[in-house]
Design a protein around this nucleic acid. Structure first.
Lengths: 183, 183
DNA sequence: GTCTATACGACGATAGAC
DNA sequence: GTCTATCGTCGTATAGAC
């Protein structure tokens, strides 16, 4: 008798994290959300950490897809700007999932974050950076984006006027610096 | 009969957060560290959140002092570089405190983070940025630093080679972009 | 695979005695 | 201000019925 599926459990966990925050995700509450009891969850996932790994993996795949779609076939600078906006939009849409993606990086030996978030930026920025500095440029861009959206979702922003404007200013400034470093 | 003081409790909490991480800070463990029982803590601080606010306030004052000392009387660019290094050093020294400072910004109606971290950067960068873009430049610099050190302490870095080098590259690039934005 | 029932050891927090 | 005792919740786990 199968009352639910692994995919439904992951999706329910995702919804709880998005809607109520990761602190409100409990095994008892999650089980109730899919119509079973807490002990039954342990037949699907070894423990809560394993469940969160599954949620994080799906979230990372989603983020990567959005970044690659935003980049499209644009030239480096427009691609980077569109990716930056897509990145920020994801974080503002689902801050709980965003935090999960980045906070749990330490416990991810496969370094999924590199493939999902860093690689798309490196692909877009390499032509602009030149001189073998595509990796450094992508790291700088990801760090800037991460800092901007973390400050925003954690309530430390806007620290300097309207955030849309501060966001654009920062991205433009770094892109200019990267392009000039290549010159 | 006073077995301890508020200051001793805050200091003990600070040491636990630095040495064992904020997850290991429990009311029972903290009370034991200062030689009392857990319920007695509630005569000093309303709850754990109030205690953490006190720890955060002290950590923010410490960070601000370090940033202002690093800046000294240097010109904008050297001052910003020294502040960036001091900022990173603080985060690597006490990642638990660093996370507390930034993660709890949302619950700080006084926006202490602005005074402690943003203002020093604005003071240093205003001459470089010009055109009334000192605030935006400081916000961009703080966001970049925050992203860089968060990626580093959360284990997502080094994502692009040695981190010292990636750190310098990113800071230099943004400084160049800021200077160029000024015309 | 799911259920009921039960258990353990943490946690934050409170009531009331002294 | 400190204590003992206690509460409710949490993650986790097990046993055994169906």
């Amino acid at each position: 008798m199968t009352k639910t599926s692994d995919a439904q459990i992951v999706e329910a966990a995702r919804q709880i994290i998005i809607g109520q925050g990761i602190d409100q995700l409990t095994q008892r509450g999650l089980a109730a959300a899919v119509g079973i009891k807490a002990p039954s969850l342990y037949k699907r996932f070894a423990d809560q950490a394993a469940l969160l790994r599954a949620v994080r993996g799906q979230a990372l795949a989603d983020l990567e897809a959005r970044l690659r779609r935003a980049a499209g076939d644009q030239p480096p600078a427009p691609a980077a700007l569109r990716m930056a906006n897509a990145f920020r939009a994801y974080a503002l849409e689902a801050p709980g999932l965003y935090r999960l993606i980045f906070d749990a990086a330490l416990q991810d030996p496969e370094r999924t974050l590199e493939r999902a978030a860093l690689a798309p930026f490196e692909a877009a920025l390499a032509p602009l950076a030149g001189g073998g500095q595509g990796a450094s440029s992508a790291h700088a861009m990801l760090a800037l984006l991460h800092g901007l959206v973390r400050l925003e979702i954690d309530g430390a922003a806007p620290m300097a006027g309207p955030h849309d404007e501060a966001f654009r200013f920062a991205i433009y400034a770094l892109l200019q610096g990267i392009a000039r470093s290549a010159g």
